[in-house]
Simulated assay, not measured.
Amino acid sequence: MRRTGRNILRAILLLLLILASAAVFRFGLIPERFLPFPDITLDDPPLIFVDTRIAALRSDPDMCRAILRPPQINAQPITDNVRPNGCGWTDAVRISKVSGAEIGLSALTCETAVALALWMEHGVQPLAMEMFGSRVAWVQDMGTYSCRNIIGNKRWLKMRSQHSYANAVDIGAFRLENGKQMNITRDYRADTPEGRFLREAHMRACPYFRVAIGPEFNEAHHDHLHLDRGLLRSCK
């Protein structure tokens, strides 16, 4: 009986240790420079432990900002803005270009900006060249910061949206250098090259963002892709 009790206690302690370790990596509590992996750069896509390595940048703002460099992204640090109601942002940047494409983001957390740059540089732009022989020249931003709860899903209505922390970005359309434009509302569900491009671009966001959802998720996302680096996980 005593041995059984000790085994149960060991199992409980091991489970708690595993859960604590998972939480440490999930919340990005270990700076990226202390992880046993090469430092993230925008030149090459991280191939292993991608989510953990991006999350670790949350604990190392200086290193995160140092990663955000042209030509993969044009970003300028902005002043922290924490609101009494819990909304606002810390360690955020303003973005004018990502992977050579024009975009206008007034506030996006550095961690999410890294995810955006990796997705555009190693996911979207190669896909555009492969399918259309032309790079993306412009990305329609449909919002980053907005102090509000999650909309469109009754399970999470009382939970703050990641937009409340400038930790999310909504994308509505892409325009290529050859003038072709692909719009989420019009093209996402279509059985056309434009529709296939948008659906594949969506899927290529999933390794870099914890949440990458679009029209197939619910009606609230009929006109955009929602991408964020929050605590939830969904790719649909």
Rank of each mutant, 00 (worst) to 15 (best):
M1K: 08
T4Y: 07
G5E: 09
G5P: 00
N7G: 14
I8Q: 10
L9I: 12
I12C: 13
L13E: 11
L14P: 00
L15S: 15
L15D: 11
L16A: 11
A23W: 10
A23R: 11
V24Q: 03
R26M: 07
G28P: 07
L29N: 09
L29W: 15
I30T: 07
P31W: 05
R33W: 15
F34E: 15
P36L: 07
I40F: 04
T41G: 13
D43L: 08
D43P: 00
D44Q: 12
P45H: 09
L47T: 15
I48W: 15
D51Y: 06
D51V: 12
T52G: 01
A55I: 01
A56K: 00
R58S: 06
P61R: 08
D62V: 15
M63C: 08
R65A: 15
I67F: 05
I67W: 04
I67G: 04
I67E: 08
R69G: 11
R69V: 13
P71M: 05
P71N: 11
Q72E: 07
Q72R: 14
Q72Y: 12
T79P: 00
D80R: 07
R83T: 10
G86T: 09
T90M: 04
D91F: 03
V93G: 02
I95G: 06
V98G: 08
S99M: 03
A101N: 01
I103A: 03
L105S: 02
S106K: 12
A107G: 07
C110Y: 08
E111Y: 04
A113F: 04
A113P: 01
A113K: 00
L116W: 06
W119K: 04
M120T: 11
G123S: 12
L127D: 06
A128V: 01
S134D: 05
V136D: 05
V136A: 05
Q140K: 10
M142V: 06
G143T: 03
S146M: 14
C147A: 06
R155P: 02
W156D: 14
W156P: 10
L157H: 13
L157W: 10
L157S: 15
K158Y: 14
K158Q: 11
K158M: 12
M159W: 11
R160C: 08
R160L: 13
S164P: 04
S164T: 12
N167K: 02
V169D: 00
I171Q: 02
G172T: 00
A173R: 02
E177V: 08
E177F: 07
G179S: 05
N183H: 09
T185S: 14
P193I: 01
R196M: 08
L198W: 05
L198E: 07
R199G: 12
E200Q: 10
A201C: 08
A201H: 04
H202P: 09
H202C: 06
A205M: 04
C206M: 00
C206P: 02
P207V: 15
Y208W: 09
V211H: 01
A212L: 07
A212N: 06
G214L: 06
G214S: 12
E216K: 13
E216T: 13
H221Q: 03
H222E: 14
D223M: 02
L231T: 09
L232C: 10
L232R: 15
R233K: 13
S234T: 07
C235A: 06
K236F: 14
